[in-house]
Design a protein around this nucleic acid. Structure first.
Lengths: 236, 236
DNA sequence: TCCAATCATATTGTATACAATAAGATCTCG
DNA sequence: CGAGATCTTATTGTATACAATATGATTGGA
């Protein structure tokens, strides 16, 4: 029935390395060697190279000729740049979603907003992994509802970065409550077709997220210029 | 003194193919064969593949597994998407430029605006190639003056598309005059640090450009869904 | 004659071998 | 002992050979 769907080795390599990056397997600044990755995946360097170049084009790793790729680290400056663009692009997306979203999309948005609330406050501790996953789907759906495929592509590469930095573990209960509240506001604005409201809420929502990201990193461990994740090995 | 600066074959391939795309060497939809390009450039398929994948990540060509790459065509829908994003991103950039641009950048902007005026109206016929080149530098400088490197990356990939479609040949004298006027307005707004003004002018400027692009293509040759350029060969 | 299955061929995908480059180690000379 | 040049080695860059896949032609049957 469903064909074997033979995967290309380069796709396997891409997914695998990308997942490793998101999981914080390598410390920011680590040098990724093509042969190591290839050996581990049981394939040759060729598809690994292809995967690494694609990841470089998404700025998840940095590439320098003859030196290979390094895992990108995210300074406060990077975070500022990314959130500044998210404010513009995602607020525009919210406005367009308010104009174009269909009832099914609105229903799914509401469902996601409720699930996020449950993941945040349904148990004794917030389920950060669940929140991250659901939040990405919520934001992704709004961008998709805007009906601009290129916008989707742009935002995906911007949003996935903070994901690497385990965003939501930085939120305290009050900040989580604010975020949840924004989500319901967005659903209401979009459902009502009120683009101006949707834009305003989204701008505020992203600004609030930006604030959390910057506050924690500067106030935390001193002089930690690069914010990454705790590597499980290969810290270089 | 200056080291030989040995170029990598993949970079040569990238520049060469990219230039060919901008020059309209292949019709939209054409199938680019790795071996052909490799033979022509006197290199192997490996660096050609790398170059093609990079061009695919910039959406200058489309890639499908096992089928290779095709030269992208630009439908009205594509143009709409691209200009919608340019309105948001470049107007934001203009606002930031008004806040952060230094006197040297302002001077260069004014110089470029004057050169564009000369290229448009200095001779008997507008120098479309010159206008395109200068206009790209003008817009690029504003984006650069905004001080957000990621914004530069995003806008570059959006702006280069219309370049492929020979934008300025679509402008009549009145439209050229309007465009030139906008440029001087932008310089004045940015020089005065008036972000609100700069944003407004840039939004209007991009909208006007969008209008020209869409009007010509729908009104011109009938049922021409894909807007490309006249291919010099290999129309497939 | 038309449709379907099979096969041939061109093209992409991957592996591997080799070349070129850069970083580090070692050695030499002051 | 230190600084600099040279050499070694690890890693990336490129070429080429081979495998897998998709497209189109051809053939056989209804």
């Amino acid at each position: 029935m469903n064909r074997p769907e033979r995967l290309r080795a380069s796709d396997v390599a891409y997914s695998s390395i990308r997942q490793g990056l998101a999981a914080g397997r390598w410390a920011p600044g680590s040098h990724l060697r093509e042969s190591e990755l290839a050996a581990e995946l049981g394939i040759s360097r060729t598809p690994v190279r292809e995967a690494l170049r694609k990841l470089a084009s998404e700025q998840l790793v940095s590439f320098e000729p003859h030196l290979g790729v390094r895992v990108s680290g995210w300074s406060n400056h990077d975070i500022e740049e990314i959130f500044a663009l998210r404010v513009e692009l995602e607020s525009y997306a919210a406005g367009q979603a308010a104009r174009h979203a269909n009832p099914a999309q609105v229903a799914e948005l509401r469902e996601l907003a409720e699930k996020i609330e449950k993941a945040a406050f349904g148990g004794l501790e917030p389920d950060y992994v669940g929140i991250t996953e659901l939040n990405n789907r919520f934001h992704g759906l709004i961008v998709a509802a805007a009906g601009n495929q290129r916008l989707v592509n742009l935002v995906v590469t911007l949003v996935e970065i903070p994901l690497v930095v385990r965003t939501f573990a930085r939120f305290d209960r009050q900040e989580l409550a604010r975020s949840v509240s924004h989500h319901f506001d967005l659903v209401e604005a979009i459902e009502g077709g009120n683009a101006d409201w949707a834009v305003a809420v989204m701008r505020a929502h992203i600004h609030a997220g930006r604030q959390v990201m910057l506050r924690r990193s500067t106030g935390g461990e001193a002089s930690e210029k690069m914010m990454g994740v705790t590597p499980s090995r290969n810290a270089d």
